[in-house]
Each structure stands twice: as structure tokens, then as C-alpha cells.
Design a protein around this nucleic acid. Structure first.
Length: 1200
DNA sequence: GAGCACTGC
């Protein structure tokens, strides 16, 4: 039952007592954020109320009724309400209600109004400033001027649409969005270069949408794009606000723009030193309180500003402004109707999507959306915290959209609360409840394990439900069971589940979260789910027993959803987009004037500058790799570490004979970099940072930039270099120590966790991180971000399988994401170590989706396993190249996982393939498991597969502090290095050095024999985190093996006895079988050059590999590197660096190849059988196989 | 004697 009016009344009454004054004094800052929490039927009933309180309560109820979009209101009642509002409410209150009404209209879930309300960034919209501001205020004024409430006339929609496209503003959008000012010295940069947050880039994505599902971006107003704005600087808007003063102190460049004229607006400025003191790009969002239009408008008189249609004009009086606005204000006309159609609160028709699905859903579940089936008891704390979330205001809209559309897209940045709240909305609405129409589980997928686990815990807490009901399931752990109603899981888990139950019949809703990350699994899930939805809807419409439609909710932090929404192959009816406003603090963006290649040095300089001149607040520095990070951390530590600063202060105290300092740092800092302790003794003055000359020649922009080297000396940027030279003296002024922490994924968990702890009092947190900090981890307290603009990316050549690791430019979306990290706890600054022109011209809008960057044979195998045979027709959100799909099928064919049977157009999975796909590892490793049952080898195969999956557990040398950068190693370091190599050597002995996999197996065996202690890890220089993961994976694989491999020993024992010689040989054969398409042969063999070559080691010995053009070499890390080069090898990885290297190499016998890889071979005609061969079976012939690219193998017997 | 960003079943 929906809460009765009395219940609502009581709830309101209670609240209005609690917060009676809030209705009177100020209007809340923003729309939508002050909506009341859902009515609580258990609220105490208050009998005694003051007149004032009663008034407030009544007003609240009326407002709620007015704003409840789907409630049909009789015209009589409506008139009464209107009259009431007219008379009773203060003007201010009226403005607010009217604003909300405008929104409510926008929230009616017809395709049309969803379209309108999906305007870019409600709340954070980058529209032309004044534009939206004027529009908004005039709209209100206009509505007030009409003195009567008027319903939007549907017949006027054409005209409204016209207005939309002309002004670039949606009528509704204007009412809801906080305007952002965009200014530029030169119109040409304007539309492109705005960069305040991720949502901006989405603008372009949305803009391109022509199918009417989304409203055109308000950014794309004609005036914005092409017109000049000559007198911005002259407009008296230049007094710096408090927040801007900080930045201008720091960066002596003049942003030339300030929002002083529009009070309360926080500012986002892209300072671009390229633009030489011209005002550059700025955008402003209102996150503070708005001023009355009149007051504001008066100040604008005489200034040049953007008109609502995007032209620049100088208004001479307010009337002129009003007039300009008048024809744009929405014309509301009351609509009369006598039909029974569903109506909105103001009589507007609610458009139900014209699909059978929607009609049927409407019919069947009409009441469902209005009542809460499940009642929840939330704690007061939770309730209060929830109230802060903007998404709460959208509950009704979301539920209606989910009811009426099979697929709904929800966009809301981190902090909007979508991940925790949407599942709760659904739960409360009855999804998952056994008595409801939607008894299936609510499933939520996350790309990362930690997210799935922590979100489940959080939602369970908010709902006061046990983990058996709100559960999680990730690879190695699960709380999910038969009573689970809400299930958080990683996307891979759901994908696995689909292999067993393609229709996902246990689920009623699937929420795919973080879809904007475009992970491989997310993409595949969305593709398969689009088909499942269709199937389930069909079954439901046909009235099949128990069949219920499946709902899909795609959640994304950015508006980069066009790949989902516009893709008609994926969804033939474009799903509606619901956008959630998010409160994010403004981040000021500063571009460097020039782009330098020595970004690590630049980052150091920036960090020092921030540290010495800007107020407290953490610094987050983005670099590309571990080595850079460790290096920079060390440099910072040496200059601003606790010991250094403390020593300096101590010395100064002695010199000036001041009283002794209290010990600021009684506890020695936790040793983060093992080597840094030794460095602490080094005197500050000896540091040499000024001999790293700026790399003027290597500017990427060189030649493109109009003012290159000559000008550079005079610019602000040069000032930074100067200050580099002066650092020695500047350092002396710094008395605040830095709390420097590295952050990258290979770092141990506890060291990663260190960034979440507040830094010691009186110090500044400085985190030097890779991309982990961009998506996976959010560090609190960061106020400054230094973004080098680059990232190390793995690239993959589909034809040869050769990987490369390259440092390349990040995308604009990534840059926005990085910048956004500065605005989590308060207003922040982002310093980009590259020019805006580079950003504009070289940066892609978005990073490539993972599916285009990574091998996909695993995915293809999984799809074949689900009997999706025609992969080409699969609805990928972004389809990979056809050649890459063909390549994946070729690999699987070579492995024997799929084959093309006669009369079929696409190949299908084989028994071997089915077995392989049962194991949650990549196909080659799956094949090893499927083939590894002989001679009791399986435990070893499992161990090898586990270690190959997890990756090399050995520590890298840098982590030992042995990076060779210091010329003088301490005695301790020398000892450690010797020990390190000794242990490496020790583990290389297993199996006579015939395979690198044996070295890995050896470490596992030794580790488990030693009881798996961390002590062992320390002694043997291995990462405990990796070992733990390996053990879990071994356990999981053993469990699967015992159920799918009948020959397998079902027992999992951690301890492994050393393998015997036979087992080692079988292991090599198993490795050869798994990597049968990755065979390399010594070049002199295949080229039949002068034979009899003698090699002492594999160094410089060229090999030829299947499908690889260039010569390849055994990597120096291989144990084969120092041995005479074997003829035939298989390799796990091929990486192009200074050379093309083969890694994790295994020596194979040439005779195995034809036997293990029939799909890799062609055969000669039968040879005459030499008399020496006596045991030919009937039907057997002797042939010469040609392997891969045509390497001749020794004669081979096969059946005719 | 070379270097490896980040996830996931």
C-alpha cells in the first residue's frame, strides 16, 4: 500500500518540527537536494503543533502532492492547490516550487521528457553561462509573471524543440542545471577546450546523437562555437575571489577571468599559458547559493555577455534582457482532457513508450511503482547520510523508467550514490521479494573485487540486512546463498554464471556498474544481456510459465554512453538516460605553457612549488611506472622527508640559539622505500637538482607552437625553471615535511593502504601514483593533482601476438578523471604538465575500450561455450576488427578448442574446448589443465598455471633498493643483491634449467614446504600477496579439476613433493601443448644455414617464431639465457622492447610438435617407408609435416 | 643483461 495521506502527514509533521526553521529562512542551495526522505510510516504522531508548524506541514504535503509526477490530480484540487500557492506562499517559496515543477515535468518518464531531462549535467552542465543563468531566472520570472500555473502544452512541443536546438538549451534543463560560465579569448577554442570534469567530454558524445534519445548538448550553441568574445577582460569581472587568489599567487599568470561578478559561483579555470595572458577558458558552476536574478542582472548591464541564443551582446537595460529572453521562455498552457490516459501532475500526458513491453509492464504492474512492498528500517545515521545523496530525489523517476523500459542508463559521477542506492530502490520496490511480481535476485556487477565486497557490506548495513540477503560473490569468496536477494559480484562472475544459465533466470534485474570504464567483461556482459533481455521479454509476452522480463540497468560515471545508447544492434530501442546530479567541488585546471619530455623533473618542480607556496592539502602526482615513482619518491624524501626537515630545523635552532624544538617526529617514519633510510643522512645542500636542464629540444609541440624557444625564456614557464635553479635556497624556507608515499598495484596491500591513513600531523601528504589512483583507488584529502598526461599502456599486435609497453598520452576523459581527484574533499587544483594545445590536438576524447586493446581468444571461447557461434554477429558495444575476431578463432582452432564442422558457417566448440573453458584461466592455460592428468602431473600443472596466471612472484630489483642508480652501494645493499641472485639461482635448478616455468614451480614448492610464511617470502625476495593469490587459485583450479576431470585426484594439498624426471618431462609436453601456437625455432635451423654452429649461450642468438616477422630472442630473465640455445622452444609471452623478446620459455622436443599440434601442420605425401622402420600399423603412413609457417619437421607417422 | 600500466573468472 502506498503511504496514506495521514501517514505522510505525520511524517512531515515530525520533520517540520525538527527542522521548522529551514523552510523559513533560506532556500536550500540546490534543487533536488533538499527533497525529503521517503515517508516513514513508523514516525511518531505529533498532536500538538503550533500554527506555524501546521502551515509548514501543509505546505509540504501540498508540494509533495504537486510534485508526485504520476499522481492524477483532479482539476478542482489542482485549482485549489494553485490558489493556495498563490496566496499562501512567500514569493521565494513560490520560485522554488515552480522550479521544482519545471523539473517534475521533466521527470515524467515519457521518451520525450526523458529526453529533455537528460540534458547534459543537470547540476553541472556546461552550458554557456549567463545563458543558462539568465534563462533560468527569466524562466522563473516569466512563470511568476503569468501568475497562474500553466501546464505545458504538448501541442507546443514542436516549438519547444525548436527552441532547444536553437539555443542549445533544453527548457527543462535550464531549470535544473547550474549554469557554468564558459569564456574564451578566442571562440575557436571554446567549445573544445572546456575541461572541468569528465562530463564535459561526454558532451561531444551526446551531441552527436541524432536519434533523439538524448537531447543535444547544451554546449553546442551556435554562438559559443564561432563567435568572439572580445571584451571579456574588460568586463569588470576580474577581481580575484578568495579561492582564485591562491592559484594566482602560485602561478603568476593571469587567468584574466573571474567570477566575482557572479557571486557564489565557484570557478573552474583552465589557465593556459599558451594564450599569453589572454583570458583563456573558464567555466563556472554554481555550487554556492544563487543570487536573485534582479540583483545579478543589474550588474550585467553594460557588459557584453552571451544571450540565451548564444550570441554575444551588450544589454543596456534589464528590460532588454527580459525581452531577449521572452520568446525563449517555455509557454505553458493548461491542457484540458477528458480521457483516462495517464497524466502528470499538471495534466501533461505521460507518454508510455510504444512497445508491447511497456504497455504490458504498465498494465501488470501499475501499482507496483507507487507502493513500497518491502519496508526497511534504517538507522538514523544511515537515513541522514542518505538524505545527502542527490540520487534520492530521482527514486521515482528511476523506478518508473525501469518499469517501462527493459534497459535504462543511469549516469552519475562518483559520489552520486548510485551504486548503493539504486539496488535499495529496487529492493524496496519489491524486486527480489518472493511475493512480488519480480521475485528474482537483484544482481549488481562491479569491475573490481574490492568494490563488490565493500558495496555489498555497505548496502547490507544501510538496509540493516544480513550478508546472507545482501551478499557478494567474487572469485575466491562469496557470501551469496539461497536466501540472497541483492548480490554484488564482479562482472566475470556473472559472465561465468551465464555459461551455466544463459537466461539468468534467477535474476530479475541486472545492474552493470562502471560501464564507462569499458572493461572487457563489462562490454561482453552488456552484449550478451541485450540478447537475454530480448529472449526473456519474448518468453514473457508469450506467457511462458514463470517467465519474467529481465531488466538491465547500465550505470556509468560519465555520459560516454553513446556506444550503448546509439548502437541499434545492441538495443533496437534506445534506452532512456537518467542523469544524476553530483556535487563535486570545483577543480581549477592549469596547463603548462609548453610540453616537456622530462615530465618527472617537471612533476618534481611542481610538487616543490606547491609545497612551498600553497596552503595545506595533499598532492597526488600521476606518473607512468614503478621506476619513475620510486625515483621521484626518493627525491622528495631526500629534500622534504621528516628526517631532513627535522635536522634542518634542529640545525637552525642551534645557529640561532633558540630554545630546543619539541620533537616533531618522535616516531621514525615507517620505511616505505627500503633504501631511503640510508639517504636520510645526506645533507640537503648536496642535492643536485639544478643540473637537469630543461629538455628544450624534445618538445612534442615543437614546430606546432608559434612561440618556441626564443619566447620560452620570457614566459612564466621559464620562471619555473629558474626556480628549479634556486631550489637549494628555497628549500631552506620549507619547514613542513612531506609524507611521501608511492602507490602502484604491485605494491603490497599494507603499503597501499598507507595512503588512506591521515598523514602525521604537521606534514603534507604526497602520493606518487600510477593509473591505479585514477580509477581503482580514491585517496582522501587530495587537493592538488599533478598530471603528467601520460600513461604506460600495453599494446598488442593481433597478427603476431607481440606485446609492447608504451608510454602514451592519456585521453581527455582520463585527464578529467585525474583532475577530479583533486575535488573530492574540497576545491582543488590540477596542474597538467602539458600544453592545452597538445591536449586539444593530440588527446583522444576517450581511452580505447579494453576489447580493442587486448587478446580476445578467451572471450571468444567463452562465447562459443555459450553457443554464440557467429561471433561476428555478436552485439559488441564496440565491435573489434573482423581480423582480430578471425585471429582469435584461428588461435582457438590451433589449440583444438573449436573446429569447423562440415556445412556450418562458423566453428563450434569441441570437447577439449568445453573442458578448457571450464577453467577460469586463459585458453592456453586451460588446455594445459585439460591435458595435464597423466602420471600424476596435475598438481604440478595446476601450480604452474596458477603462477603463470598470477605473474612472477619475484620482487623486482628496484624494490630491493638495488636499482643501480646509486654509484656507491652500501655494504648492506651489496649483501642483499648477492643474496637475491643466490635465491634466483637456487630456484633455477629444478628440471635442469629446461623451462622457466620450473623456476616458478620451484618457488611454489619451496614456499609451501616452508609452511607458506611471510618470513620465507622475505628471505626469498618474493611478494607474499602473489603467493597468497597463487595458493587460492590452486585451490580453485583443483576443485574444478576434480569435478570436470574424471582422472584427477580430487584432493588439494598445498604441499607439493618435488616432481620426478618423468613428471618434469610430461610437464614440458603439457606446456608445449598449451603454447603450441607459440613455438620458436633457432634461426639457423629453419634457414638451413651452415650447421654445426656452436653457441655458448642464447645471447644474441636469433629465433624465428610463428606469425612473427622479425627475429626474436630469449629474454635475459630466462634461465635459458645463459645456456647453449635449444633448437625448439615454446614461449608464453613475446614483448617488443629493445629487441623482441621471448619470455617464460620452455625447451621442447621437435618430435612432440606434430603430435601435439595437428592443427598447426600440413603434411607431405606419404614417404616410402625405410626398411629400418618395422612396426608400421595398418593404415599408417610416414609423412613430413610442415609446421606453422612451413618449418619442416622430422618424418612423422600418421593415419592415412 | 632487460625492464612490466591496470583489471578479471
Amino acid at each position: 500500500m502506498p503511504p496514506s495521506r495521514a501517514e505522510r502527514y505525520n511524517a512531515k509533521a515530525r520533520r517540520s518540527v525538527a527542522g521548522a526553521s529551514s523552510h523559513k529562512k533560506k532556500r536550500p542551495k540546490r534543487l533536488n537536494t533538499d527533497k525529503d526522505e521517503p515517508t516513514d510510516p513508523n514516525a511518531p504522531i505529533l498532536d500538538q503543533k503550533s500554527k506555524e508548524e501546521k502551515e509548514a506541514t501543509r505546505r509540504d504535503i501540498l508540494r509533495e502532492e504537486l510534485l508526485a509526477p504520476n499522481q492524477a490530480i483532479s482539476s478542482k484540487k489542482k485549482r485549489r492547490l494553485e490558489k493556495y500557492i498563490e496566496k499562501q506562499l512567500k514569493k521565494e517559496e513560490r520560485v522554488h516550487i515552480l522550479q521544482q515543477l519545471a523539473e517534475t515535468q521533466a521527470q515524467i518518464p515519457s521518451t520525450k521528457s526523458l529526453k529533455s531531462s537528460a540534458t547534459l549535467g543537470s547540476g553541472r552542465i556546461q552550458s554557456a553561462a549567463d545563458h543558462a543563468a539568465i534563462h533560468e531566472h527569466l524562466q522563473i520570472r516569466d512563470a511568476l509573471g503569468h501568475s497562474k500555473l500553466q501546464a505545458k502544452d504538448e501541442t507546443d512541443s514542436d516549438e519547444n524543440d525548436r527552441v532547444d536546438s536553437d539555443s542549445g538549451l533544453s527548457t527543462h534543463g535550464a531549470g535544473r542545471s547550474a549554469p557554468i560560465i564558459v569564456a574564451a579569448h578566442d571562440g575557436s577554442h571554446l567549445s573544445k577546450a572546456t575541461t572541468s570534469g569528465a562530463s564535459i567530454h561526454a558532451g561531444s558524445a551526446l551531441r552527436s546523437n541524432g536519434n533523439g534519445a538524448i537531447v543535444p548538448s547544451s554546449m553546442k550553441s551556435r554562438g559559443l562555437k564561432s563567435r568572439k568574445f572580445p571584451s571579456w577582460k574588460d568586463a569588470s569581472m576580474r577581481k580575484h575571489s578568495a579561492s582564485d587568489r591562491e592559484s594566482s599567487d602560485f602561478d603568476s599568470s593571469d587567468s584574466g577571468f573571474d567570477s566575482e561578478g557572479i557571486k557564489g559561483m565557484d570557478q573552474i579555470v583552465c589557465e593556459d599559458e599558451n594564450m599569453q595572458h589572454k583570458p583563456s577558458i573558464g567555466s563556472t558552476s554554481i555550487s554556492g547559493q544563487k543570487r536573485p536574478f534582479k540583483e545579478w542582472a543589474h550588474e550585467q548591464i553594460g557588459k557584453t555577455m552571451l544571450t540565451p541564443v548564444g550570441e554575444y551582446q551588450t544589454y543596456t537595460n534589464i528590460e532588454a534582457m527580459k525581452e531577449a529572453e521572452a520568446n525563449l521562455a517555455p509557454s505553458f498552457k493548461r491542457q484540458k482532457h477528458d480521457d483516462d490516459l495517464p497524466r502528470g501532475p499538471m495534466g501533461a500526458k505521460i507518454e508510455i513508450p510504444n512497445t508491447e513491453f511497456a504497455r504490458r509492464a504498465q498494465r501488470e504492474q501499475k501499482e507496483l511503482i507507487h507502493r513500497k512492498i518491502v519496508s526497511i528500517s534504517r538507522s538514523d545515521d544511515v537515513r541522514a547520510a542518505r538524505m545527502q545523496l542527490p540520487i534520492l530525489a530521482e527514486e521515482q523517476r528511476i523506478l518508473e523508467a525501469v518499469l517501462l523500459h527493459p534497459v535504462v542508463v543511469i549516469c552519475g559521477q562518483t559520489g552520486s550514490g548510485k551504486t548503493t542506492q539504486v539496488p535499495q530502490f529496487l529492493y524496496e520496490a519489491g524486486y527480489g521479494h518472493t511475493d512480488s511480481q519480480n521475485p528474482g535476485i537483484i544482481g549488481i556487477t562491479q569491475p573490481r573485487r574490492v568494490a563488490a565486497i565493500s558495496m555489498a557490506a555497505r548496502v547490507a548495513e544501510e538496509l540493516s540486512l544480513p550478508p546472507t540477503i545482501v551478499s557478494h560473490q567474487v572469485r575466491y569468496e562469496a557470501t551469496a546463498g539461497s536466501s540472497t536477494v541483492v548480490k554484488f559480484m564482479t562482472d566475470g562472475v556473472l559472465l561465468r554464471e551465464m555459461a551455466a544459465d544463459f537466461l539468468l533466470s534467477r535474476y530479475s534485474v541486472i545492474i552493470v556498474d562502471e560501464a564507462h570504464e569499458r572493461n572487457l567483461n563489462t562490454d561482453i556482459l552488456i552484449g550478451t544481456l541485450s540478447r537475454v533481455i530480448k529472449l526473456r521479454a519474448e518468453m514473457w509476452l508469450q506467457g511462458k510459465a514463470g517467465a519474467k522480463p529481465l531488466r538491465l540497468i547500465i550505470m556509468s560515471a560519465t555520459l560516454r554512453v553513446s556506444d550503448f545508447v546509439e548502437n541499434t544492434i545492441l538495443f533496437n530501442i534506445p534506452p532512456p538516460i537518467i542523469e544524476i546530479e553530483t556535487r563535486q567541488h570545483p577543480v581549477t585546471i592549469h596547463f603548462d605553457r609548453r610540453t616537456r619530455s622530462d615530465y618527472v623533473t617537471q612533476a618534481l618542480a611542481k610538487a616543490v612549488k606547491i609545497h612551498s607556496r600553497l596552503p595545506p592539502g595533499g598532492i597526488l602526482i600521476f606518473l607512468t611506472g614503478q621506476q619513475e615513482i620510486v625515483g621521484l619518491c626518493r627525491k622528495l624524501e631526500r629534500r622534504f622527508g621528516y628526517q631532513v626537515i627535522h635536522k634542518k630545523l634542529e640545525r637552525r635552532r642551534r645557529e640561532t640559539t633558540l630554545p630546543p624544538l619539541p620533537n616533531l617526529f618522535p616516531q621514525p617514519k615507517e620505511e616505505i622505500l627500503s633504501s631511503s633510510r640510508a639517504d636520510w643522512d645526506v645533507e640537503v645542500e648536496e642535492m643536485e637538482f639544478n643540473n637537469q636542464a630543461p629538455d628544450l629540444g624534445a618538445d612534442i609541440d615543437e614546430g606546432r607552437e608559434q612561440n618556441s624557444d626564443n619566447d620560452a625564456l620570457d614566459t612564466d614557464e621559464e620562471e619555473i625553471v629558474d626556480s628549479d635553479n634556486n631550489y637549494g635556497t628555497r628549500d631552506n624556507d620549507i619547514e613542513v615535511p612531506m609524507h611521501v608515499l608511492p602507490l602502484y598495484s604491485l605494491l603490497s596491500s599494507e603499503k597501499q593502504m598507507a595512503v588512506f591513513k591521515p598523514p602525521p600531523e604537521g606534514s603534507r601528504l604526497v602520493v606518487v601514483a600510477t593509473n591505479v589512483a585514477e580509477t581503482s583507488l580514491t585517496i582522501p584529502g587530495i587537493r592538488y593533482v599533478i598530471d603528467c598526461g601520460r600513461a604506460k599502456e600495453r599494446n598488442y599486435d593481433a597478427a603476431s601476438g607481440v606485446q609492447t609497453f608504451q608510454i602514451s598520452w592519456i585521453s581527455k576523459a582520463s585527464a578529467a578523471q585525474r583532475a577530479g581527484r583533486a575535488g573530492r574533499t574540497g576545491p582543488g587544483h590540477c596542474y597538467r604538465l602539458y600544453s592545452s594545445s597538445l591536449f586539444e590536438h593530440y588527446f583522444d576524447e576517450h581511452s580505447k575500450p579494453e576489447i580493442l586493446r587486448t587478446p580476445i581468444e578467451g572471450v571468444v571461447l567463452q562465447m562459443k561455450c555459450m553457443h554464440i557461434d557467429a561471433i561476428v554477429n555478436f552485439p559488441f558495444p564496440t565491435p573489434p576488427d573482423r581480423t582480430r575476431l578471425q585471429r582469435a578463432e584461428l588461435v582457438l582452432t590451433r589449440l583444438g578448442a573449436i573446429e569447423k564442422s562440415l556445412g556450418k558457417r562458423s566453428s563450434q566448440i569441441t570437447d577439449l574446448g568445453l573442458l578448457m573453458s571450464a577453467f577460469p584461466v586463459e585458453p592456453r592455460l586451460g588446455k594445459m589443465l585439460a591435458n595435464g592428468t597423466q602420471h600424476g602431473c596435475l598438481p604440478y600443472v595446476i601450480a604452474v598455471v596458477a603462477v603463470l596466471t598470477v605473474g612472477d612472484p619475484f620482487l623486482r630489483e628496484e624494490e630491493l633498493g638495488l636499482d643501480g642508480q646509486d654509484n656507491e652501494e652500501s655494504e648492506d645493499q651489496r649483501r642483499r643483491r648477492a643474496l637475491f641472485f643466490e635465491k634466483q639461482k637456487l630456484h633455477s635448478q629444478l628440471g635442469g634449467g629446461r623451462s622457466d616455468a620450473f623456476r616458478l614451480l620451484s618457488i611454489i614448492g619451496a614456499f609451501e614446504y616452508a609452511g607458506g610464511s611471510t618470513e620465507f617470502c622475505r628471505e626469498h625476495f618474493i611478494r607474499p600477496k602473489a603467493m597468497e593469490e597463487i595458493r587460492k587459485l590452486r585451490r580453485q583450479l583443483s576443485a574444478i579439476a576434480s569435478s570436470v576431470l574424471p582422472q584427477a585426484d580430487p584432493q588439494f594439498v598445498a604441499k607439493l613433493p618435488p616432481p620426478n624426471a618423468l613428471q618434469l618431462k610430461v610437464l614440458r609436453q603439457v606446456l608445449a601443448a598449451g603454447f603450441i601456437d607459440q613455438v620458436a625455432v633457432r634461426k639457423d635451423i629453419v634457414e638451413k644455414g651452415p650447421s654445426g654452429n656452436k653457441y655458448a649461450s642464447s645471447r644474441n642468438v636469433a629465433y624465428r617464431a610463428v606469425d612473427v616477422e622479425e627475429d626474436v630472442f630469449i629474454h635475459p630473465s630466462s634461465i635459458l639465457y645463459h645456456q647453449p640455445p635449444p633448437e625448439y622452444i615454446v614461449y608464453r609471452e613475446i614483448v617488443r622492447g629493445t629487441r623482441t623478446w621471448l619470455k617464460i620459455v620452455t625447451v621442447v622436443n621437435v618430435a612432440w610438435l606434430a603430435q601435439l599440434g595437428p592443427a598447426m601442420c600440413t603434411y607431405s605425401k606419404p614417404l616410402p617407408v625405410p626398411p629400418t622402420v618395422k612396426d608400421m600399423k595398418p593404415g599408417e603412413v610416414l609423412v613430413i609435416p610442415k609446421f606453422g609457417p612451413g618449418w619442416e619437421l622430422p618424418p612423422f607417422r600418421r593415419m592415412k
